[in-house]
Amino acid sequence: MNMIFNYIREIFRAISSLWAGMRITGKYFVSPGQIVTQKYPENRATLKMQERFKGEIIMPHDENNQHRCTGCGICEMNCPNGSIEILTNRVPNADGKTERIIDKHIYHLSMCTFCGLCVKTCPSDALAFGQEFEHAVFDRKKLTKVLNQPGSSLKKEAKQ
């Protein structure tokens, strides 16, 4: 008799535990307002990444097309993956001495691990993280970027 009682109790316990689970999924089924996913390409206009989001490395330029990079090469040295290459030119300056200025700041996005060491160690704050995250391209050569814009020059007051 006791066995039969246990058998029946077991069944009821099982059913109630199953019902508890079904209540949870049922609750979400009847409240579609709780949907958390986003319709991504449609919400592009309102989608705003966090301000510190590490999308890519950029070199901010001001309105005069001037940047702060002196071409010192510290970012290149600190990058663990070799994703930064710096090509410099030596040009004579006003005083008649040769000065090193940056020719190309090459950034290989395909190799970057976003560790942030280049941005952190840059002595003149020339680098920053950009919010762009749609990096998909058909040709991986496009992932190699030149960060300084053509014709840009060094912002002098940055040296202070």
């Binding site: 958390v36 966090q50 510190r52 989001f53 590490k54 691990t113 976003f114 560790c115 942030g116 952190k120 993280f129």
Partner: peptide, 27 residues
């Protein structure tokens, strides 16, 4: 996702956030 949002807000990345540095934090 809520935790990852907290991470993203502070470190900029969600999963692989190299946020520690010897001696303290990155920022």
């Amino acid at each position: 996702e809520m935790i990852l949002d907290i991470f993203e807000e502070s470190f900029g990345s969600r999963l692989l956030h190299s946020f520690n540095a010897p001696g303290g934090l990155m920022h």
